[in-house]
Computed example of a mutant assay.
Amino acid sequence: MDKVMRFSSNKEVGVFSESSCCLSYTVSVLLQEFGINPPVYEIDQDPDCREIERGLVKLGCTAPVPIVFIGGKLMGSTN
């Protein structure tokens, strides 16, 4: 949960992603087309990936990825 809070609160826009997720890639490209180059946290590249996923669920995320935060506020997924 600590990693989730640190990443999401220190960014104007941040995306939690998985390296093999096509929707995560699409969200990142869409944001870039609006002139936003968000930092992307690849959950599956972190040894604590299950802990991060549990932390995101505690914050109210129902879909696994992509999860978008803007100004520290959970915006949600592609749903």
Results as ranks from 00 to 15, higher is better:
T26P: 00
K11L: 11
R6W: 12
A63L: 10
S28E: 01
Q32C: 02
G72I: 07
G76S: 08
E53P: 02
G71C: 03
G76R: 10
F16T: 02
Q32Y: 10
K3N: 06
E51K: 11
E33K: 13
P47W: 04
P47F: 09
V15W: 01
E12V: 11
C61K: 00
K73P: 03
E18D: 07
C21H: 09
T78V: 15
G60I: 15
I36Y: 03
K11M: 13
Y41P: 02
P47E: 14
T62E: 12
T78D: 05
R6G: 05
P38E: 03
E18K: 07
S8R: 05
S9E: 15
Y41A: 06
D44G: 13
D46N: 10
V13P: 00
P39D: 14
K58S: 12
C49Q: 10
R50G: 01
G35K: 08
F7R: 13
L56N: 00
K58P: 02
P64K: 07
V29A: 09
G60E: 14
E42P: 02
M1S: 06
E51Q: 11
C22M: 08
M5D: 11
C49N: 13
K11D: 12
P64V: 10
L23H: 13
D2P: 04
G35W: 13
K73V: 09
S20W: 14
S20R: 15
T78G: 11
C61T: 11
R50A: 14
S77L: 10
M75Y: 12
S9K: 13
R50L: 08
S9Q: 12
S17Y: 01
I36S: 11
G55N: 06
V68E: 01
K3L: 07
V57H: 11
D2Y: 10
K58A: 05
I70P: 02
T62W: 14
R54F: 03
V40N: 04
R54L: 12
P64M: 11
V27R: 07
S19V: 03
S28L: 02
S77W: 01
E33V: 04
R6N: 13
Y25K: 03
I43Y: 04
I67H: 09
P47H: 10
S28P: 04
S77V: 01
E18W: 05
V29E: 13
P47L: 13
V15I: 13
T26Q: 09
D44S: 12
E42A: 05
E18C: 10
S28G: 02
N10R: 02
I36C: 04
L31I: 07
M1N: 02
C21E: 14
N79E: 09
E18I: 02
S19G: 11
M1I: 01
G76I: 01
E33A: 03
Q32K: 14
L56C: 08
P66D: 05
Q32G: 03
L23T: 13
F69S: 05
